[in-house]
């Protein structure tokens, strides 16, 4: 993809800490560092894939970008404009440009609203397309995602998972956003339906020049849809590269282990492939290891890894890696 790219979303040293386990009198509390000092840039018209295991903070990043969570520290710049410290009211015009598609199509649609109400809701919030225009716009949207206008008077329970996800996509597209955060949009769907939804997201991107943040734990789907990929572990970005660089020249031991753990859907390749076995579980984010968070499971951990947290460094070609082994 050799087109001149301009940054749409820039994230600088973003932190999101949650206070948990408050003591009885509220004097002491533990901090859960869900996102700890993460920086990246998403370019216009591209898809940035964010991968990692559960609890690594990938969904929190998505929600913090939309300011559904108030960031603890750091800067979010949308289209050249810092939005980190905007009030709810000041944020409204930006919310129109940033939309979200959620993971669970069963929980993200209100069961008591008709499909027309669900898709028309963002139009009402932003007070655009009034009267008959709104009816037309809703019709246009439902057809855009491959459903029919006579579906509009039905309720969510009458639809399958894949159809519901299409309705969620139509709702996100209603206000003509530039940037859509897709938070595990396909993980609740069957394989054949996943392909339908992913193809549709790609078509819509081409047609409307959309920019996506695609949060997922499915590494092969992220490889398919993304232009740039970030790998997260326990609240930090450990590797960031273009999709080609990342999958052909992965550098961080965690990225390698994560990719080698994906079962290959090909019996011949599966037989010959060598797996990197990670021992144990992801440590608790309430009490993360000192230094590099991955060192407790890393097969190559050094002394230094326990003492010093590695910074993201360019290993050439804009391929960023946070690992002491590469020094």
């Amino acid at each position: 993809m050799a087109k001149p790219a301009s940054a749409l979303v820039e994230v600088r040293n973003l932190k999101k800490h949650f206070e948990v386990q408050k003591s009885f009198l509220g004097r002491s509390s533990t901090l859960l560092k869900a996102v700890d000092d993460v920086s990246f840039t998403i370019f216009r018209g591209e898809t940035f894939g964010l991968v990692g295991e559960s609890g690594c903070g990938k969904s929190t990043i998505g929600r913090t970008l939309l300011k559904l969570y108030e960031p603890t520290a750091g800067e979010i710049i949308f289209d050249g404009q810092p939005i980190t410290r905007l009030t709810h009211k000041e944020m409204l015009p930006y919310r129109k440009k940033m939309q979200m598609i959620f993971q669970d199509p069963y929980a993200s649609l209100d069961p008591r609203m008709t499909i027309a109400q669900i898709i028309g809701d963002p139009l009402a919030v932003h007070n655009i397309y009034r009267g008959k225009d709104r009816v037309d716009r809703v019709k246009e949207l439902i057809e855009l995602v491959g459903l029919k206008a006579d579906h509009l008077n039905r309720y969510p329970h009458e639809f399958s998972g894949g159809q519901r996800q299409r309705i969620g996509i139509a709702r996100a597209l209603a206000v003509e956003p530039e940037f859509i955060i897709c938070d595990e949009p396909i993980s609740a769907l069957d394989v054949s339906i996943q392909a339908q939804v992913v193809n549709m997201l790609e078509e819509l991107q081409e047609r409307f020049g959309l920019t996506y943040l695609f949060v997922s734990h499915d590494l092969s789907m992220v490889r398919h849809i993304s232009h740039k990929v970030g790998v997260m572990y326990l609240g930090s970005l450990v590797e960031y590269a273009s999709v080609h660089d990342l999958y052909t020249n992965m550098q961080h031991p965690y990225t390698r282990a994560l990719l080698s753990a994906v079962p290959i859907a090909d019996p011949d390749t599966a037989e010959g492939s060598e797996r990197i076995h990670l021992q144990g579980d992801v440590p608790s984010p309430l009490n993360p290891p000192s230094g590099c968070a991955f060192r407790t499971r890393c097969p190559h951990a050094l002394h230094r890894c326990a003492e010093e947290k590695p910074a993201l460094k360019d290993s050439g070609n804009g391929h960023l890696v946070a690992c002491h082994l590469l020094d």
Binding site: A195, N199, S220, H224
Partner: peptide, 24 residues
């Protein structure tokens, strides 16, 4: 056939469009 084709395939170079099974 549909099931096998709807998983992302990666051969060198060009990325292929996912082939989905239409309908439900």
């Amino acid at each position: 056939w549909g099931l096998l084709r709807s998983i992302p395939q990666f051969t060198e170079g060009e990325k292929k469009k996912l082939i989905s099974i239409p309908g439900s």
